[in-house]
């Protein structure tokens, strides 16, 4: 469905997206990365707003930039808030549907249906400036789905939504992706993780990891991590820890031993056994953070050069 082949986007001398190669099949995909990582540029390339400086972008088998055949199959909800506040959600969504090529009456019907689906029917005729940020977010989402696209692209869709709104959005996204395709970009990994989507992690314009949540979780075993150990004899434990395979460094402070290892999961098991056999009593041993947030945080630090 979406294919980027060594796609690079430069803004003058600033790199937006750097040599990204990825194939996204029909289905749900999450794009995660911190602010300024290149998510919006990536989505700009996919939604035909931007043209790659180098490389190739294909959506539904065609270059999306300025291509009506592709654009009519895409629904895009951008990150920017709607500041056209004198208009109403109904007026705004009807306008967008008309721009998508529908007649006036059909556009109004579709707009009402989309606003209803997003739970905004009661506020459809109120000026946007009287709506909360979450409601404006729903109006944007209604505008993205009203013309029935095959691919829905959401940039930070959870912004401004309260917990109930987030839950409803997750439910909507799941129901949508059961029959269509979807890309959700967010800087909050747990939000995307909750969607059970395929994940792509983008940092500094580069795609640093992609796959299922389980595959990305598997990165933990290949990336160096820290194991924190509290015990009565920290220096003795540190000495024991140095004997184990994969240990890259040990720091001791009071009763705390912090071990840096390339095999954090295996280390916990081996260190526990070794300590027991050596008579060193452990009070606490905590392996590297196994959540995706942990991997994400590590990749960010790795990218910034904070760890090697």
């Amino acid at each position: 469905m979406i294919s980027l082949d060594h796609a690079t986007k430069l803004y003058g001398t600033v790199i937006g997206v750097n040599d990204v190669t990825v194939d996204m099949a029909v289905g749900m995909h999450g794009l995660v990365g911190p602010n300024g990582a290149g998510k919006t540029t990536f989505l700009g390339l996919v939604t035909g707003q931007l043209r790659p400086t180098l490389g190739r972008v294909r959506v539904f088998g065609e270059a999306p930039f300025g291509n009506p055949r592709v654009l009519r199959r895409i629904g895009y909800c951008p990150v920017a808030d709607l500041l056209d506040r004198t208009t109403t959600p109904l007026h705004w969504v009807t306008y967008l549907v008309r721009l998508a090529g529908f007649g006036g009456r059909e556009a109004a019907t579709r707009a009402e249906r989309a606003l209803d689906r997003m739970g905004l029917a009661a506020a459809a005729r109120r000026p946007l400036f009287t709506l909360s940020k979450g409601m404006r977010q729903r109006a944007k989402l209604a505008g993205a789905i009203a013309h029935d696209p095959d691919l829905l692209v959401l940039d930070e869709p959870f912004n401004g939504l309260d917990p109930i709104g987030r839950h409803e959005l997750v439910e909507f996204v799941r129901s949508w992706s059961s029959s269509r395709s979807l890309i959700v970009a967010s800087h909050l990994l747990h939000e995307v993780e909750s969607l059970d989507a395929g994940l792509a992690v983008i940092l500094g314009g580069r795609l640093v990891a992609s796959g299922t949540a389980a595959e990305i979780r598997g990165l933990i075993d290949t990336l160096p991590g820290e194991v924190r150990v509290r015990c009565a004899e920290p220096r003795r434990f540190a000495e024991l820890a140095c004997r184990l395979e994969g240990v890259a460094g040990v720091r001791v402070s009071d009763d705390l031993v912090v071990v840096t290892t390339r095999r954090p999961v295996a280390f916990v098991e081996e260190a526990t056994t070794l300590a027991f056999e050596s008579g060193v009593r452990l009070r606490e041993i905590a392996a590297a953070d196994r959540s995706l947030e942990g991997v994400f945080g590590h990749l960010v630090r790795l990218h910034r050069g904070a760890v090697t």
């Binding site: 035909g48 009506p68 500041l83």
Partner: peptide, 14 residues
């Protein structure tokens, strides 16, 4: 300025 450009630019012939 109004944040509506991406909405328009992603419509066919927008």
């Amino acid at each position: 300025e109004r944040g509506t450009w991406p909405h328009v630019a992603t419509r066919p012939r927008g």
